[in-house]
Amino acid sequence: MSAPLLHLRDVTLGYDRHPAVHHLSIEIARGSLTAVIGPNGAGKSTLLKALAGALAPLSGTIVADATLRIAYLPQSAALDRSFPICLFDLVAAGLWHRTGAFGSLTDTDRRLVHTALEQVGLQGFERRTLDALSGGQLQRALFARLILQDADLILLDEPFAAVDTKTSADLLDMIHAWHAQGRTIIAVLHDMHIVREHFPQCLLLARECVAHGSTDDVLTDKNLARARQMIEAFDEEAHICAQDGVS
């Protein structure tokens, strides 16, 4: 067993001092394929955001290799689809680590973009603008961009939320391919069927870690019931967390 890719030590994440995820201590093994599940408000997206480096922990540390290359696909709402660029340009942005902010695309880069588009079944759509794509096509495009990012750690936030079964099956194949290449993948998911079928590891969150381990051990009726009970409302009047001791 090699050293873990990510090591979370007593990590608390949240906004404006209110924690969304409490005292999380887990290790993510190199090359693992993990589903993050839990009720609404469990802190799943917050966790991914923190792993991506977009949110600093309120306390605790996330230990990762500084050279670790991370690709993060948030829920698609953040994208402005009315902005007039074409699919090719959106996907080509995945080569940022090669081109940087100023470099131009070489012929090799262009070939890479075309290959990625072929892999997700979008060849022939290069000149389409983003508002002319269906939800499924856009998600395929974002997966093509992930391919180009060539990352060690891939973070996916509800990647199948707005896509049909054919598309999610194709995207799952993609995820398995990445897994086979030795990349580490963490995905927030809702569909328990997909989790059981495709994800060997599972993290059940309910504002703290309910269970983490192999999917069969985690997805028991007892754990799921406990997760539902543990979700409580965001409390404006919340006291300072007792686990931190009186300060």
């Binding site: 991506a52 977009a54 994208l79 402005d80 902005f83 942005a93 902010a101 100023f102």
Partner: peptide, 23 residues
């Protein structure tokens, strides 16, 4: 021309840009 690429990405997909660059 110099800031073109970061500016376009900041418009289209700011959270993606944040994940690859501080520009």
């Amino acid at each position: 021309a110099l800031i073109f690429r970061p500016l376009v990405m900041e418009c289209v997909d700011p959270s993606f840009l944040r994940s690859v660059s501080r520009a």
